[in-house]
């Protein structure tokens, strides 16, 4: 469990980006009532706990030329565990165009267990990717092309931590 100070730090950084200046945590520390060193210690501790994965830049993939994206769902239950592992690691996780990859509990009406988001430069590239990933083994799948982004925002952690 987290203490109040750690929660406050998480909530603060779920809303605030790191400033593009020499010492981006200086102002944040003042807002949080901590010294800069204390704040850095809390952040590093959260990283050691795995709650913070890293501090990184978020690229606008559309601006970077990745105009098409799709949610792809596979049914991997016909694969042996080692085959499934290889499929996920070698085909999906290691591909830099895949941003998200999850195992989910499938449901009647949507019988797939592995999901990934692919960012590509065209629909043809998405289809080619799916063809290549499923060529060796017959793996049932569906491609759900993104038509419109209706909501995308940073979630405040307030509701999640209290």
């Amino acid at each position: 469990m987290l203490g109040k100070r750690e929660k406050d730090v998480l909530i603060y950084f779920s809303r605030q980006d790191a400033a593009l200046c020499s010492r981006p945590f200086k102002k944040a520390a003042v807002k949080l009532g901590l010294t800069e060193n204390r704040l850095l210690a809390v952040l590093r501790d959260l990283q050691a706990k795995g709650v913070i994965k890293n501090l990184r830049g978020v690229i606008d993939h559309r601006q970077a030329g990745y105009r098409t994206n799709a949610l792809i769902a596979w049914n991997t239950r016909g694969l042996r565990p080692a085959e499934k592992d290889d499929f996920i690691q070698a085909r999906l996780v290691s591909d830099e165009r895949i941003s998200h990859c999850y195992q989910r509990q499938s449901q009647p009406g949507f019988d797939y267990d592995v999901f990934a988001m692919l960012h590509a430069k065209s629909a043809a590239e998405v289809k080619r990717f799916v063809r290549e990933t499923t060529r060796q083994k017959k793996i049932a799948h569906e491609i759900l092309f993104t038509e419109q982004e209706l909501k995308k925002e940073k979630m405040s952690f307030k509701d999640l931590l209290e």
Binding site: L10, F13, S14, Q16, D17, A18, L20, P24, L43, G50, V51, I52, K53, N54, L55, R56, G57, V58, I59, D60, Q63, A64, F157, L160
Partner: peptide, 12 residues
């Protein structure tokens, strides 16, 4: 517009 922001990524 290539860089949207720099912030932490979390695993809640």
């Amino acid at each position: 517009g290539l860089l949207k922001r720099i912030n932490f990524s979390f695993d809640l």
